[in-house]
Amino acid sequence: MSQAVLDALKARFGDAILETHSDFGDDTAVVAPEKWKEIGEFLRKDLEFDLPVDLCGVDYLGRLPRMEVVMHLYSIARRHRIRIKARVGDADMNQAELDSLTSIWPGMNWLEREVYDMSGVVFRGHPDLRRLLMYPEFEGHPLRKDYPANKTQPLVPYRTEEEAGITLEKQPPFGPDEGMSFPRQVWQRPEEN
C-alpha cells in the first residue's frame, strides 16, 4: 500500500535514501541524516503524513553509525504508514545530531526530548531540549546498550553495610544473576553487517 511512498521518496531524493525494505508489511526507508528535515517536510507537505506516531532510538552497539533513530508516521487523509530511519553517532556517540522536526509536527517536541533523554541524540533547532522522563541531574542515557541496568546514579547513595547494620549482599535494583542459580541469557552483540 505504501510502496508508492517509497517510490516517491526514491524518485525525489535518490541517493539520500540509503536502503528500503518492506519486511512484515512495514515499509521502511533508511535516509541520510543530513536530509532528515528536508525529507520530513516532503512527507508532511507532498504526501500528507499529518500524524507523528512515534520516534525512538535503537542502539546498535558495535555497528557504525551506532544509533538508529526510528520515526513512524501515519496519514489520516490517505491512510498510509511509513517508517523512516536515520543512523547517527560514532562509537562514543559523538556527532549524534539530527535536525529537529518540531516545526513540521508540534507533537515531535516531547518525542525528541524523550529520545534525547533516553538515547542521547541531540536535535538541532529544538526549542526546549531538556530531559523529559529523567531528572536534570541524571548522568548518562539509560536506553543505550552500554548503560548497565544495575547502574546507580550519584544522587542516590546507597547505605554502606555499617550504616545499615545488616549485610547488603543483594545490591538493588538487580544483581547480575537476579537471584537465580544460573545466569539469565544475556544480550549478545550482533554480527557486523
Binding site: 499529518d50 507523528p52 506516531v53 489520516i76 509536527w105 508540534p106 507533537g107
Partner: peptide
C-alpha cells in the same frame, strides 16, 4: 488539525 499535529489519537 492541531490535535493531529500533536499526534493525538
Amino acid at each position: 488539525s492541531d490535535a493531529i499535529g500533536l499526534g493525538w489519537t
